[in-house]
Simulated scan of single mutants.
Amino acid sequence: MRVEIWSDIACPWCYIGKARFEQGLAAFAHRSDVEVVHRSFELDPGRSKGDVGPVIPMLAEKYGRTIEEARAMEANVAANAHAEGLGYLADGRDHGNTFDIHRLLHLAKARGRQSELLDLAYRTNFAEERSVFDAEVLVDIAVRAGLEEGEVRAVLADENAYAGEVREDEREAAALGADAVPFFVLDRAYGISGGQPAEVFTRALDQAWQARTPALKTLGGDDGEACGPDGCEVPR
């Protein structure tokens, strides 16, 4: 079974939702048969690359709230993150354009290191006093995830590198009707929106698995004559 997850590194519910999905997956009996693929989605695609600023004022402006209300919103998200054992700084974080991060995630996917880079990017953005929108920080976490520094720098220097892959993910999200993230798609048959509780993911995985491997139905009415461990039935 394939599970595709559309997310953005700037989305706190994607960070929390990933942890909850992984808990739900761990409780799924056929977890070893599940392929997880991470897809790109930009929450703020129109933001210029150099436009990086603190999260709290951005939230206040975006949602029409006061600074104190925006801080309360972040404190609520932080409480949810901490409940999942995740680090979270409710204040002092940056917000910016995530296109370069998505491009590097596609490079990491091609090198078999996507999950490692995604985890480090989330942790850096939400739990550390460093800005993931700083190019040198991004290079550092990519190398820590197992990528080759020269290749990482070459991708960042070439704005077209893996850009097509990011845009294709975003086109697919639009075609599937996803206008918010995280968005989980199970075998292109079931969709789950938002950072749901772990048990919701486990139930959804069970349902999707049963749909792809339905229980055997015996046709032909009553059992006919057959042989078993105790011998063969003799027709009357």
Rank of each mutant, 00 (worst) to 15 (best):
P45K: 00
K49P: 09
G50F: 00
G50H: 00
G53Y: 12
V55P: 02
V55H: 08
V55K: 14
P57R: 06
M58N: 10
Y63Q: 13
R65S: 14
R65P: 00
R65W: 15
I67C: 03
E69Y: 08
A70W: 04
R71A: 08
R71P: 00
A72D: 15
A72R: 15
M73F: 15
E74G: 05
E74F: 02
V77P: 06
A78F: 03
A79N: 10
A81G: 07
H82T: 11
A83H: 11
E84N: 12
E84Y: 12
L86Y: 13
A90K: 14
N97Q: 08
F99N: 07
F99E: 13
L104P: 08
H106L: 04
H106I: 02
L107G: 11
A108E: 09
A108Y: 09
G112Y: 11
E116F: 05
D119T: 15
L120W: 03
R123D: 15
T124A: 14
E128R: 09
S131T: 14
F133E: 00
D134M: 05
E136L: 02
L138I: 13
V139N: 07
D140T: 11
D140K: 06
D140E: 15
A142P: 01
R144H: 11
G146W: 01
L147G: 03
L147K: 07
E148Q: 12
R153T: 01
R153E: 07
A154V: 03
L156H: 07
E159C: 00
N160V: 04
N160P: 00
A161E: 07
Y162A: 02
Y162G: 01
A163C: 08
E165L: 09
E165I: 05
A173G: 07
A174Q: 15
L176G: 10
L176T: 07
L176Y: 14
G177C: 04
D179M: 11
D179I: 05
L186R: 03
D187L: 01
R188N: 15
A189W: 01
Y190K: 02
Y190F: 14
